[in-house]
């Protein structure tokens, strides 16, 4: 039970996070990352929750980042809206939920409309360009994930993994090999090949259409509060 009752010195105290089992050393590919918040959203049945788990697992295990992944549960998770949130950081994560999004993936019109307001200024909005007819902003990235899955992979259910491929390309700290590995360990053999194909397709399409991956706002390393607005009078809308 090491560290269960340790009194930190004040100097480093406020900054120190538990150094117990968390364990990740945050340098899978050498890129230091301040708190980075992602929301994957869409409709029940689009595989949003699986996508969240795959992405989280890849970033946590394959890259060595600290990741918290939370999701909508219950009736909300069946039919209706579905979402999965991830916080990624080189340092241990205190608050596990998202506050202000760096990346919002929306696979439905409703999701794009509901969650757009949580995006940080200069945050990235990625949508299914055929399902989101009306983007809340003209600054967004779009690919027809569902059509790509249906026509090029031959499985409409692989939409989420096509989108995951695009996310893997867009995130400058993500490595496609690690994503592929996460996919292979998490999915049953029967559907593995189709999904690897979908992942690669998403990655290639993103590369072709989006040009450069996302540029991270600021060289990180100043701690996870870096990414959160510091105006003390500003209270979140949901409060």
């Amino acid at each position: 039970m090491s560290g269960a009752d340790s009194r930190d010195s004040a100097a480093k105290g406020a900054m120190a996070e538990r150094n117990g089992n968390g364990g990740g050393n945050g340098n899978g590919n050498g890129q230091t990352l301040a708190r980075y918040e992602i929301r994957l959203s869409g409709l029940g049945g689009q595989g949003i929750l699986t996508m969240g788990k795959l992405l989280g697992q890849a970033l946590a295990l394959g890259h060595g980042y600290y990741v918290t992944q939370t999701q909508s549960y219950g009736p909300e998770a069946r039919g209706g809206a579905s979402r999965s949130d991830l916080v990624v950081s080189s340092e241990p994560i205190s608050y596990p939920k998202t506050e202000y999004l760096d990346l919002l993936v929306a696979l439905s019109q409703e999701a794009a409309a509901s969650y757009y307001s949580y995006l940080k200024p200069r945050g990235t909005l990625l949508v299914d360009s055929e399902l989101v007819r009306q983007s809340p902003t003209n600054v967004f990235l779009g690919l027809p994930f569902t059509r790509l899955a249906r026509e090029k992979v031959g499985v409409a259910q692989a939409t989420n993994v096509v989108a995951l491929g695009a996310v893997a390309y867009l995130l400058p700290f993500a490595r496609i090999e690690a994503m592929r590995k996460s996919l292979k360990t998490a999915l049953p053999e029967k559907i593995r090949d189709a999904n690897v194909k979908a992942l690669n397709l998403g990655y290639q399409e993103a590369k072709k259409h989006f040009g450069q991956p996302i540029t991270l706002p600021d060289p990180a390393g100043e701690g996870e509060s870096n990414g959160v607005r510091m105006d003390l009078t500003d209270i979140m809308a949901e409060d």
């Binding site: 560290g3 009194r7 930190d8 004040a10 406020a14």
Partner: peptide
């Protein structure tokens, strides 16, 4: 069991 984070000052 408790954890102190910067409580000393």
């Amino acid at each position: 069991l408790v954890e102190h984070v910067g409580t000393a000052d």
